[in-house]
Design a protein around this nucleic acid. Structure first.
Length: 544
RNA sequence: GCGCCUGUAGCUUAAUGGAUAGAGCAUCUGACUACGGAUCAGAAGGUUGGGGGUUCAAGUCCCUCCAGGCGCGCCA
């Protein structure tokens, strides 16, 4: 679908000779779109920018789309769409199943790595962010035609299993009765035991070796711990309403068989070198190397992450890799990306983006903790919000609060503020959507029918229509730059425009073409709000 | 020590190098026999941490300083 802005940009480019950088107007009095192209051209040519602007306007023919172009200030071009063109644009969008969202070309396959909880530990506050953000990316990327492969890089391998399995044996624990909170309690007991008892620590180490060498009895307990954990994780995923399933699990253990061959390959090609007893890869710009194989001959998370990239490129045929982790892991991943570029595991044709998110803070400005002062579990946060709002509203509130600011910044988890049904919150957007639904429901009850948007004249109608046509562009931007807050801002603006329209333009009590057109605006707004909220992972109920 | 991130109104925050830095909360003032007021309209609130520089134009780019946070070999 060829958008109005594409068309206007093309025509402006034809007369200007360069990209006119047509942008949504920053203020209502600047029209609907603005361009600063005259200022840049004037600078290059050393002439008066207003003269250049006047010259461009003379040569530009957009009368079929725009009202007469205004030249403002030092030479800005202010464009305003004709109401009939705007109405048609809304109708075109509403008739398009994709709502004006165009596919990213070329079509891509993207792996999104997110959530990644650790076995035998409940998800904590950080997992809330990676899970919500990753879920949003999956939804947005699918909306732009990308084939998305979620990968839940679950922490299901490592030396902690030695102490866990030994502790289970010591306590003669009934694994059938164990659940995830129980497993976490076990984890804490095992950890304390490890610190206090050298003999236990030695047995734990031996148990790790047994696990790694494939001892069946040991592996059975390990598998059971994973099973218990997955049950707990899935309950939380269900509570969060995210798309993740067991099919998306690709735990650390799944890369075991790749680690040795990768080490051999890197060593044989001289990319990995021996240093201080370990096999390592140095990357320009990093002081410390990636550890491919430690001095004890073991494999750690560096090489596991290398293997994951190799698998995603070679086997999953991804051409875009996205990592959603704590911002503190950025350095680690930059290093791993560097290793994989050097090794050719990550060809230039494959892009990789690390999306780091900030910490969740309490209202006191410190990292979020429970009342008892222990590290907060994800479910604690949900419980917290559900104390001041119904589960559906609480969830919308949390997701919106999480996605509506720049991801790399810390954000304050303030349940009271985020669950308000006014202001820049998720529930406010849900309320705006519910209002569209109720007005349409009443119209149907009264057997009122409507066609397309036409005859829009009121400023509130024009503002709403203009906002509606911007949906596709925003989704493309979010899919490219991975900035969910842009979609939040867009939807909040749309909801605000709808509220103004709702106040100023009676729908059901108007008549004829006006009523029909306004009902069509309500219907289009409902669809865009519902779709936009769904891309954020937020439900849009017809009633609240 | 090296590197990365953050600093915008009392609070939470937005802003592809473009016009008078835009919102929300809180505060104050209005609009209710209302298409759900779970809303809307308005006011007030800013030397964008400080200082230089580049540019026709800087919150944005460069340099420097300040404050806070984080990361830097065999844990993940």
């Amino acid at each position: 679908m060829h958008s109005l802005t594409d068309e206007l940009t093309a025509r402006l480019r034809a007369v200007a000779g360069v990209d006119p950088e047509l942008r949504p107007a920053t203020k209502p009095e600047f029209g609907h779109f603005q361009s600063n192209v005259a200022l840049r051209l004037a600078k290059d040519r050393g002439v008066n920018p207003r003269q250049v602007a006047a010259d461009l306007v003379t040569r530009l023919n957009v009368d079929d789309i725009c009202l007469p172009i205004e030249i403002a200030g030092p030479g800005f071009l202010n464009l305003r769409l004709r109401p009939d063109v705007l109405a048609q644009a809304v109708n075109d969008m509403a008739a398009d199943p994709a709502l004006g969202v165009t596919a990213l070309e070329p079509r891509q396959t993207a792996v999104v790595d997110y959530s990644s909880p650790n076995v035998a530990k409940q998800m904590h506050v950080g997992h809330l962010r990676t899970t919500i953000i990753g879920d949003c990316f999956v939804r947005v990327l699918r909306a732009v035609g990308t084939t998305v492969i979620p990968q839940n890089h679950m922490g299901d391998w490592g030396r902690q299993f030695g102490m866990l399995i030994e502790q289970i044996a010591d306590e003669n624990l009934d694994l059938d009765a164990l659940d995830l909170p129980g497993a976490e309690a076990l984890y804490l007991r095992a950890n304390a035991h490890l610190d206090a008892d050298a003999a236990f620590a030695e047995r734990a180490r031996a148990r790790v070796v047994a696990l790694q060498s494939g001892d069946e009895a040991t592996k059975a307990v390990w598998r059971r711990l994973i099973e218990i954990s997955l049950t707990g994780f899935n309950a939380t995923y269900q509570r969060l309403g995210v798309l993740l399933t067991d099919d998306d699990i690709a735990g650390e253990s799944s890369y075991n068989d790749m680690l040795g061959p990768i080490a051999d390959d890197l060593e044989a090609r001289g990319i990995a070198v021996h240093d201080q007893g370990a096999l390592v890869v140095f990357v320009d710009g990093f002081d410390a190397p990636a550890i491919i194989r430690n001095s004890a001959g073991g494999y750690g998370y560096d090489v596991t992450d290398v293997a994951a990239i190799k698998h995603r490129v070679d086997d999953l045929h991804a051409d875009r890799l996205i990592y959603v982790t704590d911002v503190r892991q950025r350095g680690h991943f930059e290093l791993i990306f560097g290793v994989c570029r050097r090794a050719g595991y990550l060809p230039d044709s494959v892009t990789v983006q690390h999306v780091g998110y900030g910490m969740v803070m309490g209202v006191d400005g410190r990292p979020f903790k429970t009342r008892e002062g222990t590290a907060a579990h994800l479910d604690d946060l949900l419980d917290d919000a559900e104390q001041v709002a119904s589960p559906a509203i609480a969830l919308a509130a949390i997701k919106y609060a999480d996605l509506s600011n720049q991801l790399q910044k810390d954000y304050v988890f303030d349940a009271d503020r985020m669950t308000k049904t006014f202001g820049d919150t998720g529930p406010y957007l849900q309320y705006a959507h519910a209002r569209t639904a109720q007005i349409l429901a009443r119209a149907q009850l009264e057997n009122l029918t409507w066609g397309g948007v036409e005859a829009i004249a009121e400023p509130a109608e024009i503002d709403l229509a203009l906002a509606l046509t911007g949906f596709g562009g925003v989704v493309t931007e979010v899919a490219t730059l991975l900035t969910p807050h842009k979609l939040c801002i867009y939807l909040y603006d749309l909801a605000t425009k709808y509220s103004v329209f709702y106040e100023q333009c009676p729908v059901l009590t108007s008549e004829g073409a006006t009523r029909s057109s306004r009902l069509a605006l309500c219907a289009a707004t409902k669809t865009v709000l519902a779709t936009g909220l769904r891309l954020l992972g937020i439900a849009a109920p017809d009633r609240m």
